[in-house]
Design a protein around this nucleic acid. Sequence first.
DNA 1: GTTGCTTCCGAAAGCGTTTTCGGTATAGGA
DNA 2: TCCTATACCGAAAACGCTTTCGGAAGCAAC
Lengths: 341, 341
Amino acid sequence: MKKVTLKSLAISLGLTESTVSRALNGYSDISESTVKRVNKAAQELGYKPNQNARRLATGVAEAVAFVIPQNHSSLAEPFVAQLLQGLDESLSRRGWDLLVSHALTAEDESNTIQRLITSGRVSGVVLSRPFRHDERIDLLQAAKFPFVVHGRSASCDSYAWYDIDNELAFETAVKHLADIGHQRIGFIGAPLYFNFAYQRLQGYRAGLKSLGIQYDESLVQITELSDDAGERAATDLLNSNNAPTAFLCVSDTQAFGVLAAIRGQGLVAGSDVSVIGYDGLKIGRHTNPPLTTMSQPLAQSGRELGDMLLAIIDGDNPTNHQVLKRAKLLVRNSDGPLWTQ
Amino acid sequence: MKKVTLKSLAISLGLTESTVSRALNGYSDISESTVKRVNKAAQELGYKPNQNARRLATGVAEAVAFVIPQNHSSLAEPFVAQLLQGLDESLSRRGWDLLVSHALTAEDESNTIQRLITSGRVSGVVLSRPFRHDERIDLLQAAKFPFVVHGRSASCDSYAWYDIDNELAFETAVKHLADIGHQRIGFIGAPLYFNFAYQRLQGYRAGLKSLGIQYDESLVQITELSDDAGERAATDLLNSNNAPTAFLCVSDTQAFGVLAAIRGQGLVAGSDVSVIGYDGLKIGRHTNPPLTTMSQPLAQSGRELGDMLLAIIDGDNPTNHQVLKRAKLLVRNSDGPLWTQ
DNA sequence: GTTGCTTCCGAAAGCGTTTTCGGTATAGGA
DNA sequence: TCCTATACCGAAAACGCTTTCGGAAGCAAC
C-alpha cells in the first residue's frame, strides 16, 4: 500500500510525470487514448494528488477561510453550523477546503486577517457580522484579496456581500406594530459599530417617520446581544414613566430576555405588551409566549456565499455579487393589538 | 512589497536558506547571535513561511479536520460554533489550521473520511456524535490515523474520546424524578444507532432498576432529534391509557416539543407533568416553563479535544486520552412533585 | 604540530506537482 | 520526394521550504 504518486503512476504506465499530469488535468496536447489510459490507471491505483505539492506548484491555495464571529455571548449561532455546511458544500464541489479561523480579541481580528492573506493558506475569505467601519474589510480590499461578507459595512459599494435588507425589515416591523395600534414602540438595539445594528435602528426610525410618529430617544436602549441584556433593558423601559407598549429587538436572543422582563413585571406579552424579535430562530416557537419575529432566509446562504467567492476568485468583479434578501414577518404570539383602555 | 521568501530573507542577511531555515526552526547548530539576527530580520521584513512548501517538505499537514455532524434537523448545534472556536484556539497556538468537512449523505461519511486520510491535507481528525457502531472510526483505526471523537462508540477502548457519562446522567435524572414522586416516567429517545441515545436509554433503565421500578416499554418512544418529533411522541404518550407523569428526553430540543405537547393537552408542565431535558441549552431558560435539564460542561471541550488530538499526533497513546465528564442537573421549572390526588 | 572535538554554516538533495519549451514522429500538401 | 504543419510526448525548471551531510574554522590537549 505504497503511497501512489505521480511518478509511480507514470512509471507504471510507461510515461513521464509531465505527460500524466497534463493528461489528468485535461490538457489538449495529450492523445485521447492515453488520457483514457491514464485516468483508468489513476482510478485503479487510487491516485490522489498531493494537495500541498499541487498548491505549491500552482500558487493557488484551493482553500478559503471562514472567520468565526467574535461573539461568544450570542446564543444565536445556529447560523454558524448551517453556514459552514453550505459553504463546504459549495467548495467541495471543486475539491477546495474550508478552514475556519477565529480571533482571540477584537484587535486581533485584523492580525488574523493579515495572517490569512499573507500566509498563502487560502485564496479567499468569508467574513461575517461586519462592523459599520470594518478594518478587516479595508485590509482585504487594500490587499486586493478575494472575499465576500455575510452582511455589509457602511461603505459597501466596492465589494461582494450577501445581506438582508435590515432597514426594510425594521420598517416592516414598525408598521406592523403601528397597524395594531402601537405608538410608543421601544427599541432594543445593539452596539452601533455593528452595521446591522445601525441599519436596523435606521429602519426603526424610518418606519416611525413614515407613520408620522415622533422618534423618542428615551424609548431606545442599546445593549449587548444577550438575553440578559435584553431583559435588563426592557425592565428599565417598562419601569420608566414613559413605558412603551411594544418592543422591537434587533435579535431574537434579546427578545427572549424582553419576554422574561415582561413576565417579571406581571404583564403578559402579546396582550399587555407586544414584542417582535429578529432572526427567526426556530426555538422562538417555544418561548413564553412564542416569539413573533422577522425571519431571514438563511437556508442556503452558505452555498450562495461560497459560489460568490469562487466566482470572484476566478476573476469576476466583486460588485457583480451583491445580493440583498428580505426578511419576512413571522407572526407567532408575542404581539397583539393595543388595549385601548 | 515583494513576497518575502526564505531565499530573499537569506540574501538580505548574507546567509543561505538552509541556515535561515534552521535558525527559524530552533535548531541547535546555529549560533545564538545569528538566531537573533535572523529572527529580527524576519520580523521586520514580515516573513511568513509558505505553508504549502513547508508541508510538502516536512510531510506533515499541520492541519486537522472537524467533520460536521450530519444532523440538519437539530436545533441543538450551538455546540458546533463553540467547539470550533475551542478547537481553533488549541490548534492556532501551534499555527495549525482547522478545516471543516461535511458529508452529503450517510454513506458518504466513510468516503469523506477516506478522502481526508488519503489526501494528506490533514494530520488528524475530530469526529462528533459517533454511531454505536461507527464505520468511520473503524476506517480511522485501520489506517492508524490520528483522531479523537466527541462522544464515543460502543467499543471505545482503543481510541481517544471526550464524552459525558450518559448513563450516569440519566440515572441521576430518573432518581430525581423518583424522589419527587414519579413512577411512570416516559422516555423520549433518539435512534439507537447513535451511541449517546443508546447509553441514555441504558441509564434510564438502570435508574429505574435501582429504584425497583419496572421497565415499561410502552413508556418509551424513539424519535428524531427535533422538537416536532418530541411533541408528537409526547402527545401519543399523554393520550395513551398509561400516560406517564413525567418525561425524560435525550435532548433539549425534543423536550421543547414535549413542553408544547403538554400545553397542547391543557396541562401544565412542572405541576401536572414533569419534564427533564438534556443538553443544558441556555435557551431553555426561556421556554414555557423554563426547562429543567441535564447540563453538560462543554465550556472548553473544544480546546481539550484539540489538545488531545495534538498530543496523539505527537505520538501519545490515544488510550491515554479518554475523558469522561459528568452532567449536572440544572433545575428550572419544568419538573415538580407528583400530585398525589 | 598533529590529533581530536566542537561550533557553526553552506551545499545539495529532496518533497510532489505544474508548466513551458522543444523535439520527434506522422500526416498532409506541393 | 521534400517541406511544413500538426499531434503528441519528454526534459527540465520551478514552487518555497526542510534536512542530512560534510567541511571549515576554532580551540584544547598531547
